[in-house]
Amino acid sequence: MKDTPKPEPTVPPAGAEAIIEISGLHKWYGEFHVLNGIDLTVQTGERIVICGPSGSGKSTLIRCINRLEEHQRGRIIVNGTELTSDIKNVEKVRAEVGMVFQHFNLFPHLTVLDNLTLGPIWVRKTPKKEAEEEAMVYLEKVHIAEQAKKFPGQLSGGQQQRVAIARSLCMKPKVMLFDEPTSALDPEMVKEVLDVMINLAEEGMTMLVVTHEMGFAKSVAHRVMFMDYGLIVEQNTPQAFFDHPQHERTKLFLSQILQ
């Protein structure tokens, strides 16, 4: 993605509040130690790209942030609410955190419009008409308003992923999590999704993106993180990260994916 418009990757606004605070985070799948002591603070408005080999724990990390995965040790505080086994806290956090999945996970039995209004109507208790008007605004924003009455199964992969992004945005989240949003797409559809994400970045959305789209990382991220073996091996500004990787494993990884 060389020719994507560049929002200037600057340091996030100084003195911004931390919206996500993770400290000493550990997680095991059975015997497998997938997250091995993660400390991470995300400022409001900050955009972070996380990369790393498969099995490094990057997806698990962002899935912990809205508790699709439970952590066994350490603390996660999102928007002032700590994630515990208290389901009320979890639902509170989930309403504030949007998530976009690799496989879109749209609801196939509902129209595009109903996919978008479901959250606002049932979680935010927005009146139906208002929710639909807002949903149309977001569909407009991801350039897909004309498909509102269709079912997800009738759309292309890129269109579905844009609908999924709009669905998350309808909840007016404070943070957006992207879990390999372009990995399941045909190559010619990657750009339309990245463009939507870049627009979102320009509006100042706080974003955590797990992706291997290094062009996107270079142009959008404030911080790029490399994870391996459940650890954050290295993190830096995109410039420094790509030009002068410090760690051997980072160098190896970058050489493999950038050829």
Binding site: N66, R94, F107, G119
Partner: peptide
């Protein structure tokens, strides 16, 4: 698919 549960949960549905 598990993704349907996850998508619903991540929207904050109980």
């Amino acid at each position: 698919p598990r993704g349907q549960y996850e998508a619903a949960e991540s929207l904050g549905l109980n």
